[in-house]
Simulated scan of single mutants.
Amino acid sequence: MSDSPLPPGSRIAIAGASGLIGSALARSLASDGHEVVRLVRRAPRAKDEVQWDPEAQRIDAAGLIGCAAVVNLAGAGVASRRWTEAYKRKIRDSRVLGTATLAEAVASLDEPPRVFVNGSAIGFYGDTGERAVDESAPPGDGFLPSLCVEWEEATGAAQEAGIRTAFARTGLVVARKGGAWGKLFPLFKAGVGGRMGDGRQYWSFVSLHDEVAAIRHIIDTETLSGPVNVTAPDPLTNREITEAMGRVLNRPTLFTTPAPLLRLALGDMAGDILGSQRVLPTRLVESGFTFAFPSIEGALRAALG
């Protein structure tokens, strides 16, 4: 139920188009007849590519001319490796500097895009325990909340230029390859999966299908700007998700990973896995969005489809 969907043939730029979400979004848009422009860090090899260097804050802004929407999903993988101080800086710079570069580029255009959708994460809220939060909640404490605050603030140039700007605060994306579940599925299929820590921490998940549909809904819905949580409407605990994984894959889930072992193996990143985030998609639901896979079992089966 969108205000004014983009007409077929609209030009849409995506930064991070080779990633899990970006590649799925690009396929979805192209299948509906839209022209997808991919931002790449190397020399362009095709007419649908535009070169940029987010850390150096360089971009060929001319390549964005005529875009009805710009979607920024670029950034170094948060769970790709252990969080050393150097890698934390890379995570931050790839997002904050890249976002500022894109925001300034779209603001400089004579005819800017009608919407700028910037990636963000439910890490904004920090550890919420058993307390449910929505977009009205303040940021939490720690590395990820402070990163998300800077990441969203880096869109300032686009907002000042009057471009509708939304922050897609994404949860844990359920997909067969990539993201958290790309690591979980092989373990559970092998019968060595299980709960993490005491299993009472809430995980706010979303199917890859609904993630893409939500971003497209944000693009099309004129009333959506600012933070928009992209999570399924019923967050579950790690223990409940572990049980669902066992049912869907028909495997035992007897193994547990003690919290001290996770902290030893992952360092600071363990706090994100052991922390609890019970996040609700209030603004998405109120704007008329319908989830295709609201339950964890549906999301898991869709990923394995």
Results as ranks from 00 to 15, higher is better:
D127Y: 06
A105I: 02
W151S: 03
V133E: 01
I122V: 10
E152T: 05
A103D: 08
I122E: 01
A103N: 11
I91D: 03
P139L: 01
G126P: 02
E111A: 15
L144N: 06
G142D: 06
G140F: 01
A137H: 10
R92D: 15
E150P: 01
S136Y: 08
E111C: 12
T128D: 00
V149N: 09
E104L: 11
E152D: 01
L102W: 03
S146Y: 11
V115Y: 02
L97H: 09
L144T: 13
G98R: 03
P145K: 06
I122W: 00
D110W: 01
R95Y: 08
L102V: 09
P112Q: 07
R114A: 15
L102P: 02
F124M: 04
I91Y: 03
E85M: 11
V117Y: 04
P113W: 05
K88F: 06
Y125E: 01
P145A: 11
N118P: 04
I122N: 00
E135K: 06
R82D: 12
G119Q: 12
A107Y: 03
N118L: 11
A137F: 07
G129C: 09
P113Y: 12
L144I: 11
E152P: 01
L102H: 04
V106S: 06
A121H: 05
E111S: 15
G126I: 00
T128F: 00
P145M: 10
G119L: 10
S94Y: 11
G126D: 03
A100T: 11
P145E: 12
E104W: 04
R89T: 15
D134Q: 12
T99M: 08
D110C: 07
R114M: 12
G129T: 07
A86E: 14
R82W: 13
I91T: 07
T84E: 13
T84Y: 08
T84M: 07
D110L: 11
F124T: 00
R114V: 14
V149C: 07
A86R: 09
A100M: 13
G142F: 01
D93E: 15
R89G: 13
E111I: 15
L147G: 08
P139Q: 05
Y87M: 09
V117S: 03
A137P: 07
A107S: 07
T128N: 00
A103L: 11
G126A: 01
S136H: 14
E152V: 01
E104I: 10
T128W: 00
P145G: 12
A107I: 06
Y125L: 00
R82C: 12
V149K: 05
S108D: 11
P138L: 10
G140N: 04
A100Y: 05
V115T: 10
R95S: 04
S146C: 13
F116T: 04
Y87L: 06
R131M: 05
E135A: 11
W83Q: 06
F143C: 08
E130K: 14
A137Q: 08
D127T: 10
T128C: 00
E111P: 02
G119P: 03
R95F: 05
E104A: 15
L109Q: 09
T101C: 12
R114L: 12
G98C: 08
Y87N: 07
V133Q: 02
I122M: 02
A86P: 02
K90S: 15
S146F: 06
D110R: 09
V106Y: 04
K90Q: 15
A86D: 14
R89I: 14
P145R: 11
P138W: 10
G129A: 05
D127C: 07
E150M: 06
